[in-house]
Design a binder for these strands. Sequence first.
RNA 1: CGGGACGUAGCGCAGUCUGGCAGCGCGUUUGACUGGGGGUCAAAAGGUCGCGAGUUCGAAUCUCGCCGUCCCGACCA
Length: 574
Amino acid sequence: MKLAQLVGQRLKEAPREAGTPSHVYLLRGGYARPVAAGIFTLLPLARKVTAKIEAIIRREMNRIGGQEVLMPVVLPEELWHESGRASDVGAELLRFRDRNDKPMVLAMTHEEAVCQIARSEIFSYRQLPCMLYQIQRKYRDEARPRAGLIRVREFSMKDAYSFHASQEDLEHYYQQAHQAYERIFQRVGLTDVVSIQSDTGMMGGAVSHEFMALASCGEDTLLMSPDGSYRANREVATAAHSFSREEPLPLEKVHTPGKQTIEQVAEFLGADKQRTGKAVFYLDADKKLVYAMVRGDFEVNESKLRKHLGTLRLEPADEGAIRAAGAEPGYASPMDIAQDKARMVIDPSVAESSNLIVGANEPDYHYRNFNYSRDVKEAEIADIATVRPGDPCPVTGEPLLEKRGIEVGNIFQLGEKYSRPMQCTYLDEQGREKFLLMGCYGIGVGRTMAAVMEQSHDDYGPVWPMSIAPFQVHLCALNSRKPEVREAADRLYQQLQEAEVEVIYDDRNEKAGFMFSDADLIGAPLRLVVSPKTLAQGQVEFKTRDGSEKAMFEQEQAVAEICKRVEAALNYST
RNA sequence: CGGGACGUAGCGCAGUCUGGCAGCGCGUUUGACUGGGGGUCAAAAGGUCGCGAGUUCGAAUCUCGCCGUCCCGACCA
């Protein structure tokens, strides 16, 4: 391919909307163009990269017995009613009607569709286990797309679904999938990927892991022990706190005029925030009030709370709802909540501490010396506190580190979550009808490309690993109007093509710096430069994009060297 | 959905406060020179100033409404 004909202009300056490195280089390098918020066209460079990522995914899915299928993007909404998710998910699911006024949706994932196949095609334990996968587009009507291809509304995803006759078999396969994912991310060149415990969220199921590419622009927050033995999404992370108990002192009502926040109360009473209790009110999916309480120096973790409550939605409660349960906003007391009007969930940081300052349930008053076991009759105790960096690791006890990550993949043990409502059954050896046990496994393709860019770039552009580079070699002919340069470069171009090396050839009559800048933005791992200077020595210049190597070769040697390196880099073995 | 910023040529921006010919740099086209990190000179093409109303002799500029994009938060397999 000649660079002059490559569609996708390189830009000297980044468009204003681009913030993160991958977003900047996707736009500057001519990889992708925005069509609407969170909706992109992939230009040839990006499509070459994603095609290579997809090929790697296919190989690894096939290796663990995957069978590729292709399910539709447009699905009847009734399928989503069958699974029960039509009412669980909100506006992210784009719903519309077809010409016959039939309610339809754009698939945001394909559990329902694959269940429909499973129940019509899988009848016997003899067919199990099996796994179906596809690489297909998904649409999620995200409230806030961001960071280029990292969070988009329409995207390409590899999604896989496995079916099993037993929990043991599901768990065994889950391990295989986990290993396949590690191979995939290694092969695409992601250097910092960790699998972490995660929230199952709307997918449901018992066990799940997220694969996180560590990157500062990542939107997920991870907590890790320094030795890496504990890794969890902040949504589920726990800490091994120890709380000190003291002899309970008598309750004492104190005047705290106008002091509503923890900061104000603690400062006014000259106490540490650790000596206070913080009340936070929510409304669950049924609009029932939830009273959540953590120690004053903690924050309520809504993911953990949601999971504990078994609800998919939580919203902050307004003052009216709080008052309706007999609580005073700003001065809420855990002792005066009408039990039938609110669910009270108390974090161990409160339940296991002594003599805390809490609200007195009337304006401008707090209590000192609140003790959960003495002062509260009925409440649920659950870990609902957000873990902070520095908190003690639940495994090693060391201070936890906080990192940011891009979720490039995830795997779930779904069990019967979908097979039961959708009636996906098979007959076991005894002829009994049973529900299929399912696992599901996703990888975001475009997001993976962006994550590689985030992890592998310099000030001039992406530095692609050979395995997914849009081109393997960038050939520059400097001063190409000189016949000897053109002749030598043309010959190199031809030889490389004949050797089936993927080469981008820049024979434009441009200044060296201009051409090098374009080459940096395209990011091919190897570069050859032909110029009057190199030809004076009968040679061409060889460079690696990462700057680690530079050498002069005779032409034939150069071709041989390139072939050798391309082959070596792609010859992946496990 | 809450808060903030922005919308003028393909990209980056000035002009808007204080109404009066639509500008600059880069990129693109043509030619010459140049030749190892976005070069120089000359010429050229390229605009419903986000959209719609209104005020005015006159609106990119003032007023009202709408749309879009980005950032922070909420939300999110």
